[in-house]
Design a protein around this nucleic acid. Structure first.
Lengths: 340, 340
DNA sequence: ACCCGCTTTGCATACGAATGCAAGGCCGGA
DNA sequence: TCCGGCCTTGCATTCGTATGCAAAGCGGGT
């Protein structure tokens, strides 16, 4: 037995006003006299009326919903970002409709089509790219898109990342200053701009210090692959004395292999540096030196861009790279003179 | 310049049929002749038509959206569950609208009201309770609610948990069998049924083994509080030789304090057991013995209940406790004869 | 007392698809 | 050939709110 729903017409009848008056009372910025407001609020409270968001969307064309595409949540950078994103949007009266891009099943483009079906006011694509015809459709539909922690060439897409190139460079400088001579790199998924930029900056930094990469393996941003990569890199006699891992998630796996499988000491035998500064990086068990990718600021920028484009119809896409500082902890030898 | 939207009427005109015919072609189970289907599909493809989900919701009264309330994502049990939940629902044609219950700002009831405004077809409340008048409103609105990883007395609410009592008991048996004599407990947030049930089972298990609790401290399910609790419990000379921590998230913090602040060996000096079996529990750095709370099965049951209630209108609420086995790893002394 | 201008209000319609109802088409059986 | 019944189809209406427009109300200045 589900009670009939209370509509604005019911409230109007009880308050002795028109349905539009009720609507105006619940529409911020609409004109209504104090007397009307009071009558309507009273009637609404007595009936337990709540505006129907779907109908509102239908009529106004604005859903106050943001579609979010995420590929995986096992890299703990994303839960953190998701939590902050959702909260920030809630504060602005928006909500997140979640779409998981199961890496296997479907491609992101299909998902974005489905997102558009929901009449979202904006889209955030975290760690995912967009086909160019899809980005065109979004533009045609007037739905702004922000790439989060990824960027791509399409100039019509906004993107928020950390300054991956500078971050990578900084790691190189740090490791060189620490006197490391055999420096390795474990890469992320090669299709990701973050991977490419981090590696580019890192290699540039090494080169500028007159050094070259000792060895390299692909980790694909996946834990198990990174572990395998570590086993391979550290198999021979001429093993690295430092390794930069393209994100923290993989770095944990690498440290585990080094310490618990190969019996190496970190940072005694090998220095390990990660990227992201996810919460577990600060846990004493890992105490991982890493590049801080400020999720809070990245999310704030993402929301700012989105809201601007939605509400001001300020149409220019923006691309932002948040500065990325090194977080010096205990997993890598600290050069003399560097403060933690 | 946003192109005018393509509606079913546009498709109808181009295909030479009525708008209802178009609607029927896109409504599974509606009757349409093969000829009509073909004409409509062709026209739709040519125009790039996609049904407007909002309008469909408006007309049909069903949104195929599930509202999800989560309090925090820093306990990594929830990202895992969220990912699985979202994927499973996507496979069934549903989507997740996310609501973060910032523990400070608002209470869950307010949030659920806002969820209801969105005409969701169902609600999942993860680690959160519901006021009784709110649960009545949901019932009145015909919106099924499933509590995830929490249960409460209200018999109109479905709930999916692990068998926390049995899980707690099993930990007690394991620790006693391991010959521990000074067994401590670090509690979760006292308002949570999971906390109460785990402790109840644990104490019952101790009692049945003729033992009593050595000491207890409150961890509130929060990392920092758990660390403090560990410092307090292990401050005196008569420190515990085993501690059951109410979830893994806190257990990591406890292990870190024991090892890196107090210089104790785990499991040499102290055995630590957690609850949840989140992914990092299996990482060698922690290698945490814990109670496996099968997220996959819990999510599957949650979805099953939800869909049943939505689609069959099978109205009886169900409460399910998934069996919870001990995952024996290296953080606690293993009794002779127990297999890992 | 009169007029101008701003605020408030109601009316009517739009948003886009789903669906009850009745009419039309088609088929088979007698 | 005629009739009954089922499958298709279109018409008209519905869902609940927002909003353009025009009318009404109100207040102040002269």
């Amino acid at each position: 037995m589900r009670g009939r729903k209370i509509t604005s017409a019911d409230v109007a009848a009880r308050a002795g006003v028109s349905q539009s008056a009720v609507s105006r009372v619940f529409t911020p910025g609409a004109s209504a006299s104090p007397r009307t407001v009071q009558k309507v609020r009273k009637a609404a409270a007595e009936l337990g009326y709540r505006p129907n968001v779907i109908a509102r969307t239908m009529a106004s064309g604005r859903s106050r919903i943001i579609g979010l595409v995420v590929a995986y949540l096992d890299n703990y950078f994303y839960p953190e970002a998701l939590e902050k994103l959702s909260k920030l949007l809630q504060d602005r009266g928006y909500h997140v409709l979640l779409f998981m891009a199961s890496q296997t099943a479907e491609n992101v483009d299909d998902i974005v089509e489905r997102i558009l079906d929901h009449q979202v006011d904006g889209i955030v694509a975290a760690s995912a790219g967009l086909g160019s015809e899809l980005s065109a459709r979004c533009r045609a539909a007037g739905v702004p898109v922000v790439l989060f922690n990824r960027s791509q060439d399409d100039p019509s897409l906004s993107a928020v990342t950390s300054d991956n190139v500078a971050g990578g460079r900084r790691v190189a400088e740090f490791l060189l200053a620490g006197g490391h001579g055999r420096i390795a790199y474990i890469a992320g998924w090669e299709g990701a701009s973050t991977q490419r930029d981090r590696e580019f900056g890192f290699l540039a930094g090494l080169a500028r210090g007159g050094a070259a990469l000792h060895s390299r393996a692909a980790g694909e941003f996946r834990l198990e692959t990174a572990r395998t990569a570590a086993r391979v890199l550290f198999a021979g006699p001429d093993r690295p004395d430092a390794v930069f891992v393209a994100n923290d998630h993989m770095a944990f796996g690498v440290m585990d292999v080094l310490r618990h499988e190969l019996g190496l000491s970190v940072p005694g035998d090998v220095s390990v540096v990660g990227y992201d500064d996810v919460p577990p990086a600060a846990w004493p068990a890992y105490d991982l030196t890493t590049v801080r990718q400020a999720a809070t600021r990245m999310v704030a920028e993402t929301v700012a861009i989105l809201i601007d484009q939605i509400e001001q119809a300020c149409d220019e896409p923006r691309r932002i790279a948040i500065s990325a500082d090194l977080r010096v902890r205990g997993s890598a030898r600290v050069p003399a003179g560097w403060s933690r």
